[in-house]
């Protein structure tokens, strides 16, 4: 088959909602789009471990400490599935990590904000994981098989994280004045960065059209953002916290909550590396990788020695 026919067949399968598998023919652009998106997603999971890891040593009860550890461990697991999904497209994990460490690859801008109080563990679970779920649930049905399957498990765990975060905030909001203030302050700081997690507005999203066309993306950035606002506002009311948007109001005619303008200048700056924590997050990732080099070398050297011994003993036998 020539390339035109192959492309035609590929699009026919996409339209019929069939999954594309790693060994199937796919357009180079589809492959590259997926590699970029899955890698960004994987990087977001492992960089995302860092802001929450700040509070492992300081969690206020042993139950909270265990839950936080388990949650961050889940994120490492998500990173692992996603790197594996990317590997099925012919790019290895070390190459992707090099791109993260050199600053070439991006990750979700949200993780460039600092975690300043215990309430941030609640706000991250509720808002950040909440936004992530809205982005990820449609991915369970995306056109690329390994990515879709990885997302099924990821979404289950994320929804557990979200409830856990909400429960942290609920406890604070039912607590002392000081705790309520702490919860409100965390929501104030995490609200807008969470809104930015859905990416640029539809008219400015350069990758969206192709992703929609090839079934990687099922809903537009703005559609998902609207869902997030509609879902979150009533939950905020139950907590008794306000969302820091003076323009937020219910629109009877559309049945949606209208929200104010996002500060795109801040969004673009954080993406370009100017967020409050971009440098420290990358520094920690790089350090972990560089300090781990001799450990990885030792493991491969030992594995090679062992393999050699095994093959020698087989020959003798």
């Amino acid at each position: 088959m020539n390339i035109v026919d192959l492309e035609h067949e590929f699009m026919k399968r996409i339209k019929a909602d069939q999954k594309i598998e790693p060994k199937d023919w796919m357009p180079e652009k589809y492959r590259q789009t997926l590699i970029r998106q899955i890698a960004q997603h994987a990087h977001s999971e492992i960089v995302g471990m860092l802001p929450e890891a700040n509070y492992i040593s300081r969690a206020p009860t042993l139950r909270r400490k265990a839950a936080l550890l388990a949650k961050i461990q889940d994120e490492a697991g998500h990173g692992l599935y996603l790197y594996c999904a990317a590997e099925t497209l012919g790019v290895d994990r070390d190459t992707l990590l090099d791109e993260l460490h050199s600053g070439k690859a991006k990750y979700s801008s949200i993780f460039n904000y600092p975690t300043l109080t215990w309430a941030d563990m609640g706000a991250i679970g509720w808002l950040v994981d909440g936004a992530a779920i809205l982005n990820q649930v449609p991915l369970c049905k995306c056109s690329f098989g390994p990515y879709a399957r990885a997302m099924v498990r990821v979404c289950k765990e994320e929804s557990f994280h979200q409830r856990q975060g909400y429960e942290i905030l609920l406890t604070l909001c039912n607590g002392s004045e000081e705790q309520k203030k702490m919860a409100q302050d965390a929501v104030n700081r995490w609200w807008w960065p969470s809104m930015m997690m859905f990416g640029p507005s539809d008219e400015n999203s350069k990758h969206s059209a192709y992703s929609m066309e090839t079934g990687i993306k099922k809903f537009s950035n703005d559609e998902l953002r609207q869902r997030f606002v509609d879902q979150t506002k009533p939950q905020a009311d139950i907590l008794g916290v306000t969302l820091p948007d003076k323009d937020l109001k219910f629109d009877e005619s559309s049945g949606h909550w209208k929200y104010g303008e996002i500060d795109w200048e801040e969004f673009n700056n954080v993406i370009q590396g100017n967020g409050p924590c971009n440098k420290i997050r990358l520094k920690h990732r790089r350090e972990a990788w560089e300090k781990g080099a001799w450990v990885r070398d030792a493991a491969s050297a030992y594995a090679a020695k062992k393999a050699l011994k095994n093959s020698e003993s087989k020959q003798v036998a």
């Binding site: 471990m49 890891a53 550890l69 388990a70 490492a76 990173g79 692992l80 790197y83």
Partner: peptide
């Protein structure tokens, strides 16, 4: 051991140590 979480030499060992 919790101090290692997010800083392990490779993802698999990060997960193992957290376990």
């Amino acid at each position: 051991l919790g101090e290692w979480c997010g800083h392990g030499p490779v993802l698999e060992q990060d997960i193992a140590l957290t376990n």
